[in-house]
């Protein structure tokens, strides 16, 4: 197990190095940073001094090394736009996004798995057909359309729920949470539904097809021949086998939910990282963009590693190969 863990962490470190390199190159691709910093009439002398002060006269590899050093210490530079450390900006926005994604994931699992099971066990039933048809709509409607329709219905017409923002938040140390106030929870409803919809459909369809596969396998036939109750066969034996790929997909989807909550956050003006990134893009705020890139990369690597480890917990066959 330990060797497996070390190997996975080694791979993760390599991937992160590559991501860091890309993010470092971003600074160089968008042009000469010095030109953007100095007055228009600065002399060559002044520019050279600034260049030296910033370390930009050093060879690329040395610069990359320094960039890595700063990054590891958590220093992502200072935002061009609002002149604050990028790390602080991200830390401020992170809770909003994470809470939104957590909510959306729970929602999609809580609904997706039972619906998928329903569709697999009673494929010809009315309910299953209805769910299948609706899920097709769910998977093919773009997030911004869903969001806007939800806002129109529940915020504008019915006036039940807020249409933007996080509502009131409570500060728990560095973490600002919306879970503890009524307005915070109400504000969470529409965005999390919007974000969850696609994943819900995905999980439902995955559970359905996996379960149908597993139910036709020899060991389920054998379980039936042993006279076990249908409930035990379906929900204890078959579902556990069917959930294996769901773990992977959910894990990977959490990554993309965090990384690409951008659209939902924009529609609902949710003060999360996505909104921060969109604003950074429109102001060419390179340090924020680079940090965001690094963060998203780190997220995916972490999630993939955790998913692999989880797999080893659930599937005994992997445990043996690993150890």
């Amino acid at each position: 197990m330990l060797r497996f863990l070390i190997a996975r962490l080694g791979q993760a470190a390599l991937v992160m190095l590559a991501v860091a390199a890309v993010s470092f190159l971003m600074f160089r691709f968008v042009g000469d940073p010095v030109a953007g910093m100095v007055r228009e009439d600065a002399s060559v002398q002044e520019k050279a001094e600034l260049r030296q002060a910033l370390g930009l006269d050093q060879p690329v590899l040395v610069q990359f090394g320094r960039f890595l050093g700063r990054t590891i210490r958590g220093d992502f530079g200072v935002s061009y736009r609002n002149q604050r450390p990028v790390a602080a900006l991200i830390a401020e926005r992170l809770p909003a996004t994470l809470e939104l994604v957590l909510m959306a994931t729970l929602l999609s699992l809580a609904l997706g798995i039972p619906l998928g099971v329903l569709c697999a066990l009673k494929p010809d039933g009315v309910a299953a057909r209805l769910v299948q048809a609706v899920s097709l709509i769910g998977i093919s409607t773009p997030t911004f359309v869903t969001g806007i329709v939800l806002i129109l219905t529940f915020a504008v017409t019915l006036g039940l729920l807020p249409s933007f923002g996080r509502g009131q938040t409570v500060q728990l140390g560095p973490w600002s949470t919306g879970f503890l106030t009524v307005s915070g929870l109400k504000a969470l409803v529409l965005p999390s539904i919007t974000l969850a919809l696609y994943q819900l459909t995905l999980i439902m369809r995955l559970v359905r097809s996996e379960l149908i596969d597993v139910l036709s396998s020899d060991y389920i036939r054998f379980a039936r021949a042993r006279g076990l109750s249908l409930r035990r066969i379906h929900f204890t034996l078959a579902l556990r086998n069917a959930l294996m790929p769901v773990i992977t997909v959910t894990g990977l989807q959490i990554g993309s939910l965090i990384a690409f909550a951008i659209v939902t956050e924009t529609v609902f003006q949710w003060p999360g990282m996505g909104l921060l990134f969109i604003q950074a893009v429109s102001f060419s705020d390179v340090p924020v963009m680079a940090a965001y890139l690094l963060f998203v990369g780190l997220l995916f690597v972490l999630i993939n590693t955790v998913v692999d480890l989880l797999y080893a917990v659930v599937d005994p066959r992997l445990r043996v190969k690993a150890s």
Partner: peptide
């Protein structure tokens, strides 16, 4: 009782 052909797949791997 039943015994099937393939002992590799008759038992649930998990």
């Amino acid at each position: 009782g039943a015994v099937f052909q393939d002992p590799m797949t008759s038992l649930n791997p998990l």
